[in-house]
């Protein structure tokens, strides 16, 4: 924990920060730049049309994914609720981790040594990393008497928490909303968070993302391949 600064020095520092970091007037030329950037491009070409068709197909694919993701409005499962609780704890007490590491390899080893869970956290990230992903660590939580792993990380400045549980350890009721092969996406009431949950290869995942824009970018913990990443970023969710 960081002790707060005390006394007059803190007060003077704050006064001077306010005095020297105040608002400035934007240059008058800004509107012309914005307006120019808003103008539609008028050049067309066969290649442009092909790109447009490809874009339309991508949008259609994304729309289909959204339809799949939103067609079931059930309330969050208790595993999802646990993910939100752990995420909240991570925000307030980032020091409460069983493993502090920025290394994906170390995290994978730790999981393997202490459980039969696996995490496909990318071992190598692009340099420079366009998502500025930073692994923070992991902890165990007890869920229905089973050990569930919670991985804490940040995408830029925004925290994200990923819970991983063994599917066969969960009660059927917990798995009910996750037995299909698609991702369930929920808005977390009263927050800007998004909650993603899915099941694959015998493991159930619940991911809470604090990213206010393109919350699905939290998926880049594992998906670093450019095409996959682009596909993920193109997905849009309402709410």
């Amino acid at each position: 924990m960081h002790e707060p600064l005390t006394g007059e020095w803190r007060s003077r520092l704050e006064q001077n920060l306010a005095a020297h970091l105040g608002m400035v007037r934007a240059p008058d030329s800004l509107w012309e730049r914005v307006e120019a950037a808003l103008e539609p491009r008028e050049t067309t070409s066969v290649r442009g049309s092909a790109w447009r068709l490809a874009a339309c197909l991508a949008v259609a694919a994304a729309a289909a994914a959204i339809w799949f993701a939103h067609r079931r409005p059930e309330s969050p499962s208790t595993l999802e609720a646990a993910a939100m609780r752990v995420h909240q704890e991570f925000l307030g007490h980032p020091e409460r981790l069983d493993l502090r590491t920025q290394s994906a390899a170390e995290l994978r080893n730790w999981l393997g040594e202490n459980s039969s869970l696996t995490a496909a956290v990318a071992l190598a990230r692009p340099q420079p990393d366009p998502d500025a992903l930073e692994l923070v660590g992991a902890r165990w939580i007890s869920f229905q008497g089973q050990r569930v792993a919670a991985i804490a990380y940040r995408v830029g400045v925004f925290p994200a928490t990923l819970l991983i549980a063994r599917a066969r350890d969960l009660e059927p009721r917990q798995r009910e909303s996750l037995t299909r092969k698609h991702i369930v996406v929920r808005n977390v009431e009263g927050t800007a968070w998004k909650l993603f949950s899915w099941e694959t290869h015998g493991q159930v995942y619940a991911l809470v993302s604090s990213l206010p824009d393109q919350s699905q970018r939290a998926c880049v913990l594992c998906h670093v391949e450019p095409e996959r990443r682009q596909m993920i970023l193109r997905m849009k969710f309402s709410g």
Partner: peptide
């Protein structure tokens, strides 16, 4: 906290760290 999507405690912690660094 709303803008960053984090708790008020996290905001306070970040500002505290920033203040100490700047001081």
């Amino acid at each position: 906290a709303e803008v960053f999507g984090v708790s008020k405690g996290t905001v306070a912690s970040r500002l505290s760290r920033a203040h100490k660094n700047l001081a």
